[in-house]
Design a protein around this nucleic acid. Sequence first.
DNA 1: ATTTTTGCTTGCATTTTGCAAGTACAAATG
DNA 2: CATTTGTACTTGCAAAATGCAAGCAAAAAT
Lengths: 137, 137
Amino acid sequence: MKKNLQRSECPICRSLDLFGDKWSLLIIRDLMFFGKATYSEFLKSAEGISTNILAVRLQMLEESQLLLRTEHPDSKAKVLYKLTQKAVDLLPMIVEIHLWAEKYLTITPETEALIEEVKNDKEGFITKTMAALCARI
Amino acid sequence: MKKNLQRSECPICRSLDLFGDKWSLLIIRDLMFFGKATYSEFLKSAEGISTNILAVRLQMLEESQLLLRTEHPDSKAKVLYKLTQKAVDLLPMIVEIHLWAEKYLTITPETEALIEEVKNDKEGFITKTMAALCARI
DNA sequence: ATTTTTGCTTGCATTTTGCAAGTACAAATG
DNA sequence: CATTTGTACTTGCAAAATGCAAGCAAAAAT
């Protein structure tokens, strides 16, 4: 992965560079909310990421210290990806994206349940989910 | 602008597609916080977007109904870009990105002031800024 | 011993980007 | 009134990133 030479000094820009693009954020979302944690699970995920892009994104996220590649307890063939604290701290932002998306886009059923929970008690949801995710780090 | 054929049904994915990429979000940020509203202002902005990309992004944002192209009161040569309600509603998400960026990235001075204000009183900042932005729609 | 699963890599055509240059119209300047 | 400057773009082209299909080595299952 060659880096783009013309880079902004703007933190928003750099923070978005960390994700690389939507795919990276979707991987994080899969880990946060949908219990996905392996390469093939991310690949099978509804979004339809292609395998080479997934590989590159996982590398980028690991380099950015948003993901940790660990041994899978079930099998040596598997790799277990874990969210770091840095990634878990993205939760509030991801929640806000969901709330915005719910207002302006059509939501899939699997996401709808999530958003309903958030709408009932945003702070509660964030605290609870954050604690659950931190426990797994 | 040809659209990518393989599109996700995931709302996060689609919401990020709306922005196009980091550049779109930076344009919105320039409008929200830094009083930029014309083509040349976006171009001169510190981030270093190239002119053809800026043109495409402005089109995309207009098509997505995040921006409105309006006549500039000062001159017929100028175009005044305005945020729509849909874009203003991104404020909470953008605030959360800033808070995250402040924790994990090096912040530029111009952004630092903004973040300090947010850290003092997040809800207050959002309410106040949202009201100010809505007044200009 | 063979097939399947898992986590990738490789090759290649298509698309998007970055950079530089150019253009049309409005406004300012001499 | 002619010319220069400013504004909002467009165009062309090389370089980079993406999407798609195929391949591949090690581990696990049959």
